[in-house]
């Protein structure tokens, strides 16, 4: 179990096109399953990961607003796509194109969440990095977490409005401009 804060080294780690990073969490976001690829890329042992909250691999460069959007969408029982930069336990980082979906039981109840992550295109990473820089800047003007999230979220909405796209459309614009098709 890692309790010490991991410091990003700036080293980027990659995984191959044919690989899928898979994790599952319960409804509270606690990891219940992680596949081999996840463990390898995140530099974690299985027992270090399972039972931990998913933000175990949260990178400080990720805007809080993206996670708010992610959880808001999942609460509505909808799928969400997001470009995410994650932090491995050894300080390396890796970009993924995440597809997060609720898992339902036979009666339609949400029993947890499932995340498939694929290799994003370089152009999508560059575009997401740029957008997140803008959101991060808006969030860093606030000390209180709640205000920071609200500021980042408002900035995201403004960006979308300026581009005349929904969040989903923007994400898919990025993915279809690149390799993922």
């Amino acid at each position: 179990m890692k309790t010490t804060q991991v410091r990003p080294t700036g080293q980027e780690r990659k995984f191959s096109d044919g690989e899928l990073i898979v994790t599952k969490t319960d409804t509270r976001g606690i990891l219940t399953y992680a596949n081999d690829v996840f463990l390898r890329i995140s530099a974690l042992d299985e027992e270090e990961a399972i039972g931990q909250p998913h933000n175990l691999i949260r990178h400080p460069d990720m805007p809080r607003a993206v996670f708010k959007l992610l959880w808001d969408t999942l609460k509505e029982r909808r799928e969400i796509f997001a470009y995410v930069v994650n932090l491995a336990a050894d300080g390396a980082h890796y970009w993924v194109f995440a597809h997060v979906t609720p898992s339902f039981d036979d009666s339609g109840r949400v029993v947890g969440y499932h995340s498939n992550r694929r290799v994003p295109s370089r152009s999508a990473i560059a575009a997401a990095d740029e957008l997140y820089g803008v959101l991060r800047a808006a969030e860093r003007r606030h000390d209180r977490a709640q205000e920071a999230v609200a500021a980042g979220y408002a900035t995201l909405q403004r960006v979308l409005e300026e581009r005349g796209r929904t969040y989903d459309e923007l994400v898919w614009d990025l993915s279809t401009n690149g390799r993922t098709r």
């Binding site: 044919g18 690989e19 899928l20 194109f97 597809h99 498939n116 694929r118 989903d168 993922t180």
Partner: peptide
Amino acid sequence: GHFYRRFLAGGMG
């Protein structure tokens, strides 16, 4: 009608 949402073939062989 959300045709922008593609099938993600990444990770599929």
